[in-house]
Amino acid sequence: MSAALDIQGLTTRFDTRGGTVTAVDDVSFSVDRGRIMGLVGESGSGKSVTGFSILGLIDEPGRVTDGRVIVEETDLRSLSPDHLRSMRGRKVSMVFQDPMMTLNPVLRIGDQMAMAVRVHEPMSKAKALERARDALGTVGIPSPEERLAAYPHQLSGGMRQRVAIATALLHRPAVIIADEPTTALDVSIQGQILAEVRRLADETHTAIVWITHDLAVVSSLADDICVMYAGKIVERGTAEEVIGQPRHPYTRGLLDSVPGQHAPGTHLPQIPGSTPQLSHLPSGCPFRNRCPRATQLCASAPPLARFGDHTALCHHPLETT
């Protein structure tokens, strides 16, 4: 079976006053239908820029300089702007952290969803509204008929995010890119949405890329995990492999620093230093000046260490524990 989304060597650079920085550096991964890929990283790791690069939403001074983004056998990077626009929302859609990036505040929910339907598929407005209502029902919105007539400000944050997800689902896309979609929500509402998303992936076979900084969320939601650091994917594997037996020292450090698994009041294991600035990366492995396992070898570019399909970009990956 071919993957719904296959990314090869994706590279995005930004021209800044301090020179060109590489925000996404040779990123490759693929997601099969019905699977959820968790893309995890801290701020500045390039996880969101990766999401935007997939959809061709990078603006000046940034540009995607290299790589392929293949959605159901079409390379999005080879398409004309018009053709790409016809793919967005139909084959690939995006859910943002702030649902108001998706929703128009002065249009009724039904009107804007029907518009999103008819952009890609000519049909009567009544039929489009019917599709919108069904999509709202799919994401667990109670009495969807009434919500069609509501304006975004009449809905709570959690409801708006559901509407944004329902809008992303309107054309049954092969791929949904979700960028921190539950970060701004309360835990009880986040729990509801995570449960719905898991169900959607299972039932509609949509491939989902879930971008987040929250390790607990990906560990409980995702099938596969990519860990990003300074624009690179430093570790990739199934959720079980990456969480249960991390190979990259950065992943290990990140997992250890989550409170809740240590005796209360004790020192948390911490990664020294701070998240790097892309304009001042060390040579070789970008993590080496914070890494407990670093040696002189790490000044050269790290190789991809393989443990079956589980990989780590590291000179000194962790052995079995």
């Binding site: 835990v187 009880s188 986040q190 729990g191 509801q192 995570l194 898991r198 929250d214 390790l215 607990a216 969320v217 560990s219 409980s220 939601l221 959720a239 079980e240 969480i243 249960g244 997992l255 989550v258 809740g260 698994q261």
Partner: peptide, 11 residues
């Protein structure tokens, strides 16, 4: 019950 916890396996 609604808080995701760090662990292996789907919650």
């Amino acid at each position: 019950a609604s808080v995701p916890t760090l662990g292996t396996g789907r919650q």
